[in-house]
Amino acid sequence: MMDYVDLVFLIMGISALSSVLFTFLTVKTKDLMYAVVFSSVQSVAYALIYFLLLAPDIVLVYVAVSVGIYPLIVILLVKKVGRYEVVT
């Protein structure tokens, strides 16, 4: 029998694992725009973990920064250095 605490920890584990997967994709992909999107998805997984750990104060600022402000600044950077990573 699974009580709700186990369920919460299960969801936290799944989102932690998926955040590792998206971090891996962020590092591996050669298209930097995709890298920004993968990195944002990883941040959303972290936001879910913060929420389940009962830290709504952190979630409020984390969502705004990681989904709004951080992708913008990185996209501005990508615009200046070029979209595709060149392997030499």
Partner: peptide, 17 residues
Amino acid sequence: TPGGGFQGGAIASVAPL
């Protein structure tokens, strides 16, 4: 309620962006 000045400011700055 949960939240505060920094959180509100960070959310609000997405609007002008």
